[in-house]
Design a protein around this nucleic acid. Sequence first.
DNA 1: CGCCTATTTGATAGCCGTCAACCGGAGTGG
DNA 2: CCACTCCGGTTGACGGCTATCAAATAGGCG
Lengths: 238, 238
Amino acid sequence: MLIRKFDSHVALDSDDKDALAALPHRVREMSENSYIFRERATPGECAVLLEGFAFRQKLNRDGERQIVSLHIPGDPLNLQSLLLDRADHGVQALTHAKVAMIPRSAMRQLALDRPNIATAFEISNLIEASILREWLMNVGQRNAQTRIAHLLCEIATRLKDRDLLGHYEVELPMTQKQVGDVTGLTAVHVNRSLKALEVEGSIERYRRAIRCPNWEELVRVADFSDSYLHLGRQAAAC
Amino acid sequence: MLIRKFDSHVALDSDDKDALAALPHRVREMSENSYIFRERATPGECAVLLEGFAFRQKLNRDGERQIVSLHIPGDPLNLQSLLLDRADHGVQALTHAKVAMIPRSAMRQLALDRPNIATAFEISNLIEASILREWLMNVGQRNAQTRIAHLLCEIATRLKDRDLLGHYEVELPMTQKQVGDVTGLTAVHVNRSLKALEVEGSIERYRRAIRCPNWEELVRVADFSDSYLHLGRQAAAC
DNA sequence: CGCCTATTTGATAGCCGTCAACCGGAGTGG
DNA sequence: CCACTCCGGTTGACGGCTATCAAATAGGCG
């Protein structure tokens, strides 16, 4: 999984792939909503999501939660803690999930030994920052319907890019409260906005599954453009 | 300026500092609001802010602007474009500013030659991402007064950390419209919120200068904690 | 079935946006 | 020196989007 993701950023040679495959690790099964890392921790391992979904969150003084990223299989979950001494946010499983835990020392040695992989680490971090900028725009400047539609477009696009999605049909593994914590809305308003999107024909819903019969239309409503996801190999890498 | 910033992330040896000092560059004077890099560009140079302030912004479909970062002297302005092929946002001078422009190739060679500096690059990027997460929390979960107070605390803390601020007295070089574009508010509401902060005694104002006679109080109102800024050397670096 | 959580819906309130007018300092030109 | 202009800041009235509160419905799982 990780190989596939990193290879999509930088062209890895077979030695790079072997080195990634040879990483020592243990696989942990995480149940829904369980913590993978807690805020302020300095974990001794790096986690890579193998199955399921995960998210990162921050809490404010009043205990209100902001979800600051969503992760799909293949995503590293705490690369930043290779270099920063304390996590400024918590990482949790969104669904039941499998996570590969890799000793920090092994990850750091790998980055020292294999420049291509170090570059892939950096690109992964930079894309995360780019997504954060887009989310900031989303929450700061867009109305509720657009925010939610944008989130749907992003998830669908990221899943599709990693071959985890057949059609544009998302089984959104989040409660409406969690969608609200991503978009800065309340669960009630998320509900109303989803309904409005449905009534206007941008999406169809059955339970939590959301289909996008008219992708172009949803993209338009969402003010979505995938350029911030920086899909494909980055020409600038060496 | 850059040496001082990077040295605050990682302990640089004298060779590292010499290498940074020897970087080829030209200094550009930028007038207020002029573009340093445009969205979607692939700049051939890296910029480091020497004097003045700068910001990055994204525009949505309706032309509304979200400011996604603020920069003070010493900050690199487009490190991410060393590895990502197209900028997902624009960079502009907030005030009259001096910027050092360094050829991309020289920056990349430097990162290859000097691991400490490569690490400093990465830490700088990671801290930016951490600030983005906090801003997302700010815009998504806090009310207007708290958002603005939080922004003031952050700016003051960052300036103080780089010895650019005597007391907690910020001459905020931004229009109220720009503050709104950071915080996801309108200029009118920024104005009312600043007034409210003043009435409640959290800040004092004279023109655009803002004093914080009671820093503790402002921090409390702002729900501010500086941990996300990751000040000081990161123990995890090697 | 029974419990618990998530979703849905309605009524109401409030924060913030919009529109508009006025003020006030800085720079310009007469 | 003063009038003029312009841009940003300030203030008021009003409206709308979203939050809050509350209650009913539906699903999931023992």
